[in-house]
Structure formats: structure tokens, C-alpha cells
Design a protein around this nucleic acid. Structure first.
Lengths: 136, 136
DNA sequence: AGACATCTAATGCCAACGCATTTAATGAAG
DNA sequence: CTTCATTAAATGCGTTGGCATTAGATGTCT
């Protein structure tokens, strides 16, 4: 392994640790603020955002899983939590009765609109700019 | 809110989503490879790395918590797992008998040395370079 | 039509986390 | 020396997550 390879490895690992630190800091701050001000967690918020940022309601559980970066099972339970809280509604999918549609309720949309400024505010404060993020 | 503010908010949120996606992808890949090839998870590896990259053993549970970005309680249990696996050892701290030192055993160091190439390999493959990371 | 591989989402089960609390040690104040 | 606030780490408890499995639906092949 050459000297420059060692340097490259260092840089790679440093970038990873930077990412971990940044993720932990921002996630933690979001969790704290979203939970205390609106009673939801980060995953819940990301799910609402995914649903809000679509057609006008939205659909397919599988798409939601991709949006929130969770497993299929975790997404199913997340949907169940949101449904219990009255924020989303599950609906049968006519064209494929195995699948379901998840749609935002009015309450869900309202909560999302209310929580979004908090979310953006925390990001603006806790998410380092590009320069810092890449460790230059 | 001005047009450029909207653009800035978009950029901020995009950066966050990019970070989430990257974190999920790399963490997932690391978890899979470290688990299947060496029988440890990402947190375990990061703990071993934190311990290895210090004096020559290492210490203080609180420092470890910071290194792995976990809560105090989670770090305590992580240490317990590593100890059960024979990878670390807890030792009394003479100067402050409330605290403990966590030190790498020989087995722990060997496993770390064995797992490190896997770790670096996964990072090299899954961690996007600076350009992609910032979405340019 | 009937049998079978495939796919979607839900659920059982267990591991790992965080918060709150507990236990024990320290250090400062009376 | 005793008391009390503070600190370090461990533990009880509830929540969330992933893996494996299950139940139900689809569609392909004969």
C-alpha cells in the first residue's frame, strides 16, 4: 500500500466519521424538537413529507419504505402508528388487492405543515454547509 | 419568503435527504458485510476502532460513547456485549472508582485488524466521493 | 380451470436503542 | 466528620427496527 493510498484511506474514513457525526447530531436535534413541539419522531415526519410531496395524497407502502429508508416491516408498523394517530389512512388498492395506498388525512397534512418550519429551522441550524460537510 | 430563500430551503432539504440516503446505504452495506464476514455489527466495529486508535489500549466509557454516537446506556450495553464476546475487558479506574476503563483484548485487536479491510472496502465502494456527496 | 412460483403487506420474535431511575463514589459546604 | 449536590456507569422499561414467516392476491404454465 502506497503512501497516497494510506492518505486516501484516511480521507475515506474521515469522510465516513464526518457523515456519522453529522447524521447523529442532526437526527438527534430533529428528534428532540419534532418530538417536543409536535409529538412526532423523525421517521414519522419523513413519512408525512414523503406523502405530502406527491400527487396530492399518496400511495403504495413500498414507495413509502423507500422514502423513509426503513425495512418493509418497519414501514408497515410506522404506517400503523400514523394511522392510530389519525395522520394517515390505509386504503385498498383496486388494481392490485395485495397492495395498499397510504394517504394523508387532513389532520396529517395540518401536522406536517405545522412541523415543517421546525424541521427546516433545525436543519438550517444543525446541518453544516457544504464546505464543512466534506471536510475541506 | 423570497425566491432565493425557497431555493436555499430546497437545497438544504435536498442535502439532508442525500445525507440520509447515503447513511442508510453505507450503514446497511457495512452491517451486512461486517456481520456476515466477522460476526459483528457497525457499532461494535466503531467501538473497536475507537479503542484501537488510542493510546494503545483505551479507556473511559464516556469517551467511547462519544466515539460511537450512542447514549450512555446504549454504550454500557454495547460494552457488555463486547465483553461477553471476549473482545474487550472492563477495568476499574484507580483515580475515580465510579468510572471504568474499557480495554481491547488481544482477541479484540485481532478481530479489529481482520475486519478493517472489509470496512475500508465497503466504504470505498459505497461511500460516494465528495462530488456526489454534496449533490453537485 | 388447477397448480405453482411470485409478490405485497402484516405479524411473531428478538436485538438494540433512549429515557428515567438506581447504585455507588466524589467533592464541596457546614 | 457528616451532609448533600454531583457525577459515572448499570439497569428497568417501553419503543422501534430487522429478519423470518405468514396470509392473501396475481399471473403464468399446462
Amino acid at each position: 500500500m502506497s503512501v497516497s493510498d494510506i492518505g486516501a484511506e484516511r480521507a475515506l474514513v474521515d469522510r465516513w466519521h464526518g457523515l456519522l457525526a453529522c447524521h447523529a447530531a442532526v437526527w438527534g436535534a430533529l428528534e428532540r424538537e419534532l418530538q417536543s413541539r409536535h409529538g412526532i419522531g423523525v421517521s414519522e415526519f419523513e413519512a408525512l413529507e414523503g406523502l405530502a410531496g406527491c400527487g396530492h395524497d399518496k400511495c403504495r407502502a413500498a414507495e413509502l419504505a423507500e422514502a423513509v429508508h426503513l425495512s418493509q416491516s418497519a414501514t408497515s408498523r410506522l404506517t400503523a402508528r400514523l394511522e392510530r394517530a389519525g395522520l394517515v389512512q390505509r386504503a385498498m388498492c383496486d388494481v392490485d388487492r395485495r397492495g395498499i395506498f397510504v394517504l394523508l388525512t387532513e389532520k396529517g397534512r395540518d401536522l406536517y405543515e405545522a412541523a415543517r418550519p421546525t424541521h427546516r429551522e433545525v436543519l438550517a441550524e444543525a446541518l453544516p454547509g457544504t464546505e464543512q460537510a466534506v471536510g475541506l
